[in-house]
Design a protein around this nucleic acid. Structure first.
Length: 957
RNA sequence: GGGCACGUAGCUCAGCGGGAGAGCACUACCUUGACAUGGUAGGGGUCACAGGUUCGAUCCCUGUCGUGCCCA
């Protein structure tokens, strides 16, 4: 028994339990042992995060695919799990400690702090998983993984060790993006370029050997900079080699103001003669470009900042080297001054001595940390790097060859662009939460990379014995006795970039590096569904790692969906406060409505600007479906054993079978092509505008009439079509459809495991091969879409279409005319079918009840010609007359007819002018020309009838 | 500066070489035996602008203007 009202919350709670108890989503169910696997790995959300709109969209689309393929009989594995999200999670816990005024991370120490993070994970880690379940995600929850799981950690260690062994991971001292707030290096991708209104300072650097005077331009060179405070670390001045202004100065030196360091003037085309003064200061330790310039000219690298972004001058040997007397006094004065304060004070000091020529307002982009929001400092440190350039090569090739394709295709360009210009990937992070790097250092700094500490120890002992640092005897003792190893090696403190473990996700979750049956069966995966914002972070890196370690690309298709934006098109973010919480929408309208909205708006290549009104509209759609099913139930509609819709005899029933088959094809093909919006649109229109608006309405007289074969067949068909609807809609609205499936009949299985109505829209591989062989090989790929197999061919019934189409047109037009003539619904009128064709005469009696009911008529009759003074409409070329003499204003009818005639005239004119155009007739496709002729004929016929009608009207008045 | 999108009904969006579509909103009418979370009918758009290709352009090409995103 279906409840009177549709209550999403009740249904959703109950169905979640039903699915869970039945293990419906478990991969590798025995009954699917011989089925082809279908695998998707979830983009793992942050373990302590909560569901946002992006997740809702991303997971709705994955779920549509998984439920669709599951119903098509595949052995579906949707692999769920969460990401440890290094920086983000560590920050959250640190903030928590601060808010609770508890000891900070450093005071706690590494071990205690990590315990604390694990506690937080235990507390909040289920949130996001439960939210995904509320959305209806049909993951195999029994296989949930976490990037810091034992198994996944094992994979991470193995990958690191192997890549290091192969020279693809190495340690290097170079400039990194340093976050002075989080005190860690970050990768290029974690840096956000922000446009900032700043200044350009023009500094005067005195030329060596000349006596400096602000009034004597020959005594100095002007350099322009956006970061005056870094001048303390300057080790050169660069001018363009072809810049005539400065050619004489190249090779000479300037004396750095305030500092007194002697600095060389070099020629380098990095300096742009058009910009600023044409001369730039070179600070190799604090700027990426300057670093390169410095390398080209052998300039020293002097770091003048510490990890926290404060000036570091006292005891800074690099800084103090070769400085004149008195330099240490300045160093002491400015030591430990924060970088922005330092900028201000140094500018003041320079100004006081006449070293500033001028200051211009200047807008430029400044790198910011995407997590901390502070300005990133290029900083010279030792870090671990992945040789991304080498790994990128096969990853590029896999997409070029089509082994992996992007949908929509244009993202491939973005992918190539990035991959072909890829930089070494900095993977070490100065954090505690994450996979600690499996590298150990000896007392002399020698590094030993190994999977375990034991192994590292043995490497180290071997090495130091060989180097004769210790004797073989000592080595043996240390190997045997842990207590004697004190100080031999210490582990690298750093952890790996979170994306390092994410890059392994498609195989680490299946049990790799162990040789598990899951790895064999489910790798490579079928499709990856994700947003374009993480193509670089994640997709590219999975491609690299997958190809390197598994020798096969991790997925054959990458479906890139839109970003969900706010109504203004801006990215939703907490800081902007424009976030729409999907859970609120679920509470208000139900998960099904939210899912349907997202799917319906997921057109390829366009962002989604979410409007709540759409969600409401689709909730109404769910209600509509609910009530249609109630109607079927009230009329005892059930599908009898062995019912074959193709064998239906009633025209109406043949028609709905035909329409259902058509929709089935539309929905199936659209999902196959990742056109989620088309699929959603097709099923929506079918349910509301075909099944509810017409089929059910047209079936009512039969269902309410006397028992008999027609009624029995109609009851069966109403139920059959309903079941087909539930199946087609299930991937989009799983909860309501499963509920209705359960309550409308005794079922052998859950809807979620039922068979999809259409197995395949294309030929099998064999058939394709046959077709290909029989055709001249022009290299063209024959898409399965082009050669559809009509499983539902039995249902095509043009005669039924024509008959029902006539009924629909007739009813619609009568309604329209009645509304136009302001005939109140309560007024019943009569209908005269004038000069009806034999076809119409044969059809009409079958539909009298329906037409009377729907068009609000009292009687339908035939006549040779329309009665005088009747409103006359044209339905498929024949006149239908409503004798309304006295009911309506005949003048109004004349106006209406005039309008109709004018319309027909316009159509005739348009068609004729086209047909009169020789070029059109000569160039346009045959069908198009023919179509135009038909249009002309139809319009001419229509006009003739309308003129007759007008004539008759005139005779009356 | 380079790249990628996008400007279609009041709003949110489909469509895309042969007569402009949906949902919501709006107007009028309707509590008809599934449904007022509903039904019926209707109004509303030189498809940003300017050129070009074509027999034919909202759709393809070029440019302009505007908006958004990504990368320097």
């Amino acid at each position: 028994m279906i409840e009177k009202n549709y209550q999403p919350a009740d249904i959703e709670a109950r169905m979640s339990v039903v699915w869970e108890d039945s293990l419906a989503f478990k991969a590798g169910r025995p009954d699917r042992r011989d089925a082809t696997p279908f695998t998707i790995v979830i983009p793992p959300p942050n373990v302590t995060g909560s569901l946002h709109m992006g997740h809702a969209l991303n997971n709705t689309l994955q779920d549509v695919l998984c439920r669709f393929e599951r119903m098509r009989g595949r052995d579906v594995l949707w692999q769920p799990g969460t990401d440890h999200a290094g920086i983000a999670t560590q920050m959250v816990v640190e903030r928590q400690l601060m808010e609770r005024q508890q000891p900070g991370r450093r005071e706690m120490g590494r071990e205690k702090f990590l315990e604390r993070v694990w506690e937080w994970k235990a507390e909040s880690g289920d949130t996001i998983i439960n939210q995904l379940k509320r959305l209806g995600a049909s993951c195999d929850w029994s296989r949930e993984r976490f990037t810091m799981d034992e198994g996944l950690s094992k994979a991470v260690i193995k990958v690191f060790v192997e890549l290091h062994r192969d020279g693809l991971i190495y340690k290097d001292k170079r400039l990194v993006n340093w976050d002075p707030k989080l005190l860690t290096a970050i990768s290029d991708l974690e840096v956000q370029q922000v446009e900032v209104k700043g200044s350009l300072w023009y500094l005067r650097y005195p030329i060596e050997g000349k006596s400096f005077s602000p009034d004597d331009p020959a005594s100095f060179i002007v350099v322009a900079t956006t970061r005056p405070e870094t001048m303390l670390g300057d080790t050169g001045v660069a001018v363009h080699p072809e810049d005539e202004r400065y050619q004489k100065l190249v090779g000479k030196h300037v004396i750095l103001p305030l500092v007194g360091r002697k600095v060389k003037i070099v020629a380098d085309d990095y300096s742009d003669p058009e910009k600023g003064s044409g001369a730039v200061k070179v600070t190799p330790a604090h700027d990426f470009n300057d670093f390169e310039v410095g390398k080209r000219h052998g300039l020293r690298q002097i770091s003048v900042l510490d990890k926290e972004g404060c000036l570091d001058l006292v005891d800074n040997e690099d800084y103090l080297r070769d400085l004149p007397e008195g330099a240490s006094q300045f160093a002491e004065e400015f030591h430990n001054v924060e970088r922005f304060a330092a900028r201000k004070r140094i500018v003041e000091r320079l100004e006081a001595f006449g070293f500033i020529e001028r200051i211009e307002p200047h807008t430029h982009t400044v790198p910011h940390g995407d997590r901390s929001g502070v300005v990133i400092e290029p900083f010279l440190t030792d870090q671990w790097y992945v040789d991304a350039k080498t790994l990128a090569k096969p990853a590029i090739a896999a997409v070029r060859s089509g082994a992996t394709t992007f949908v929509p295709k244009n993202w491939e360009k973005t992918y190539y662009e990035w991959m072909e210009n890829i930089q070494p990937w900095c993977i070490s992070r100065q954090l505690w939460w994450g996979h600690q790097i499996p590298a150990w250092y000896g007392p002399d700094g020698k590094v030993f990379v190994a999977e375990t500490e034991e192994e590292a120890v043995s490497h180290a002992l071997g090495y130091y014995v060989e180097q004769e640092v210790i004797t073989p005897e000592q080595g043996r003792e240390m190997a045997l006795d842990r207590n004697k190893r004190e100080g031999i090696i210490t582990r690298d403190e750093d952890v790996l970039d979170t994306w390092f473990s994410s890059a392994l996700w498609p195989f680490s979750t299946l049990g790799w590096p162990d040789d598990t049956p899951e790895v064999k069966r489910y790798y490579p995966t079928d499709v990856l569904v994700t947003g374009f914002d993480i193509i670089f972070f994640w997709v590219a890196r999975m491609m690299m790692m997958g190809l390197h370690f598994m020798k096969e690309a991790p997925f054959s298709t990458v479906y890139i969906h839109a970003l969900v934006r706010d109504e203004k098109g801006a990215k939703m973010s907490k800081s902007k406060g424009n976030v729409i919480d999907p859970l609120h929408l679920i509470d208000e309208y139900g998960a099904d409505a939210l899912r349907f909205t997202l799917a319906a708006m997921a057109a390829q290549g366009r962002d989604i600007k979410l409007a709540t009104s759409r969600v409401e509209g689709y909730r109404n759609f769910a209600t509509k479906l609910w009530n249609a099913c109630r109607f079927a139930e009230m009329n005892q509609c059930v599908v009898p054993e062995g019912f074959e819709p193709a064998k239906a005899t009633q025209t109406l029933n043949r028609w709905i079978a035909h329409e259902t088959a058509h929709t089935t094809r539309e929905v199936t093909e659209a999902i196959e092509a990742y056109r989620f919006n088309d699929a959603a649109g097709a099923i929506y229109r079918f349910v509301w505008n075909v099944y509810c608006d017409w089929y059910v309405e047209l079936a009512k007289p039969v269902l309410l009439g006397p028992d008999g074969p027609a009624k029995a067949e109609t009851r069966a068909m109403v139920a059959w079509a309903r079941d087909e609807i539930l199946k087609l809609l299930h991937p989009f609205m799983p909860f309501i459809t499963e509920e209705l499936w359960e309550v409308t009949a005794k079922r052998e299985e859950l809807l979620t495991l039922a068979s999809w109505p259409l197995k395949s829209t294309g030929p099998t591989a064999e058939e394709l091969a046959m077709v290909a062989a029989s055709m001249p090989n022009d290299g063209a790929f024959i898409s399965p879409m082009v050669l559809p197999i009509f499983d539902h061919a039995d249902f095509t019934d043009p005669a039924a279409e024509a008959e029902i189409g006539w009924v629909i047109d007739l009813v619609t037009q009568i309604r329209s005319v009645r509304a136009e003539m302001n005939i109140p619904p309560a007024t019943l009128t009569t209908l005269v079918l004038a000069g009806a064709s034999p076809e119409t005469k044969e059809r009409a009696p079958r539909w009298v009840d329906v037409i009377k009911r729907m068009a609000r008529l009292s009687d339908i009759s035939f006549a040779d010609r329309a009665p005088d003074g009747a409103v006359q409409i044209l339905v498929r070329g024949e006149v239908a007359a409503l004798p309304l003499k006295g009911v309506v204003d005949l003048a109004a009818e004349r106006v209406r007819l005039d309008k109709e005639i004018a319309k027909a005239d316009a159509d005739i004119k348009r068609a004729e002018s086209k047909l009169a155009n020789e070029k059109f007739v000569a160039n346009a496709a045959e069908e198009v020309v023919e179509e135009e002729r038909e249009k002309r004929e139809a319009a001419l016929a229509r006009k003739a009838k309308l003129l007759e009608a007008l004539e008759r009207l005139k005779q009356v008045s």
